[in-house]
Computed example of a mutant assay.
Amino acid sequence: MIGVRVIQKVSSTPGFAKVAPHVIPALDRAVHRLTRGKVLLSAQLLPGVILTSTGARTGQSRRTPLACMPEEGGASWILVGSNFGRTGHPAWTANLLAHPDVTISWKGRDIPVTARLLEGDERAAAWKAVLAFWPPYAAYQARVEREIRLFRIVRR
């Protein structure tokens, strides 16, 4: 079995950032669909959700598998717009800014949530927690000039 530290080291590399965005979400969507929402392949390493949002420009429904950091109490999660350390913000973050009322699939259950972009001290505290939760996010931030967006999603 490959150790978590090895996976963290590999996931911090620029090569991973080039390949992962094309492979991991496709695998996650397929496994999630085949298991009727019960399994996310990437969630074997990090907790994950399927985010169903409305496209900021298109208005169309979008389903995006994402790693998340559940917060204490089970009523909120942090979503990290790391885009695997690539230069642009991921599209799903623009969708949340435009249409913050969304749905997540969490452990096979659909949950209506509202997303809020974290800023200032609140973002700083969440970022510290996120780095303790998954250290490779620091490598992603170091590769880009943009500030990685953090969202707190809470049950509606």
Rank of each mutant, 00 (worst) to 15 (best):
residue 156 R to I: 08
residue 120 G to V: 07
residue 114 T to C: 12
residue 79 L to A: 07
residue 37 G to C: 09
residue 139 A to Y: 03
residue 106 W to H: 12
residue 149 R to P: 14
residue 81 G to A: 12
residue 16 F to M: 02
residue 114 T to N: 12
residue 109 R to S: 14
residue 59 G to Y: 08
residue 26 A to E: 10
residue 151 F to S: 12
residue 34 L to R: 14
residue 137 Y to K: 04
residue 60 Q to C: 02
residue 146 R to P: 07
residue 122 E to Y: 04
residue 71 E to V: 03
residue 28 D to W: 00
residue 9 K to V: 01
residue 79 L to H: 04
residue 78 I to H: 02
residue 14 P to T: 11
residue 136 P to L: 05
residue 28 D to C: 13
residue 90 P to M: 06
residue 62 R to Y: 05
residue 25 P to F: 11
residue 94 A to C: 00
residue 58 T to H: 03
residue 29 R to V: 04
residue 21 P to Q: 03
residue 41 L to V: 13
residue 77 W to C: 03
residue 156 R to K: 15
residue 119 E to H: 05
residue 118 L to R: 04
residue 94 A to T: 04
residue 63 R to S: 14
residue 119 E to P: 00
residue 19 V to Y: 01
residue 92 W to N: 01
residue 120 G to F: 09
residue 14 P to R: 13
residue 50 I to L: 15
residue 30 A to Q: 12
residue 125 A to L: 11
residue 63 R to I: 00
residue 94 A to M: 11
residue 73 G to D: 06
residue 16 F to N: 07
residue 85 G to H: 05
residue 46 L to E: 06
residue 102 V to I: 14
residue 47 P to A: 14
residue 55 G to M: 02
residue 29 R to I: 03
residue 96 L to C: 11
residue 81 G to K: 02
residue 90 P to W: 04
residue 14 P to Q: 08
residue 85 G to N: 04
residue 99 H to D: 05
residue 131 L to M: 10
residue 89 H to S: 14
residue 43 A to H: 13
residue 32 H to F: 13
residue 52 T to L: 01
residue 56 A to I: 00
residue 41 L to I: 10
residue 119 E to K: 09
residue 91 A to N: 07
residue 114 T to A: 14
residue 80 V to Q: 03
residue 78 I to C: 06
residue 86 R to G: 01
residue 51 L to G: 05
residue 111 I to K: 08
residue 24 I to D: 02
residue 30 A to I: 12
residue 76 S to I: 06
residue 51 L to T: 05
residue 54 T to C: 09
residue 76 S to A: 15
residue 7 I to L: 15
residue 132 A to W: 00
residue 57 R to H: 10
residue 137 Y to H: 09
residue 105 S to C: 07
residue 62 R to S: 04
residue 8 Q to A: 11
residue 138 A to C: 05
residue 92 W to K: 02
residue 154 V to K: 07
residue 133 F to W: 15
residue 155 R to I: 10
residue 86 R to M: 12
residue 72 E to L: 08
residue 39 V to M: 14
residue 11 S to K: 02
residue 64 T to H: 08
residue 126 A to E: 07
residue 121 D to M: 02
residue 150 L to Y: 09
residue 33 R to L: 11
residue 22 H to T: 03
residue 130 V to Q: 02
residue 25 P to H: 10
residue 132 A to K: 13
residue 16 F to C: 06
residue 7 I to M: 15
residue 7 I to N: 03
residue 126 A to L: 10
residue 4 V to E: 13
residue 87 T to I: 08
residue 136 P to Y: 03
residue 151 F to H: 06
residue 134 W to Y: 15
residue 152 R to E: 15
residue 138 A to N: 09
residue 23 V to K: 01
residue 42 S to M: 14
residue 9 K to G: 13
residue 99 H to N: 15
residue 16 F to T: 09
residue 87 T to W: 01
residue 131 L to D: 01
residue 45 L to K: 00
residue 133 F to K: 03
residue 150 L to P: 09
residue 72 E to Y: 00
residue 100 P to H: 03
residue 31 V to I: 15
residue 74 G to D: 10
residue 109 R to F: 00
residue 134 W to P: 09
residue 135 P to W: 05
residue 135 P to N: 12
residue 42 S to R: 08
residue 15 G to V: 12
residue 15 G to Y: 07
residue 115 A to D: 06
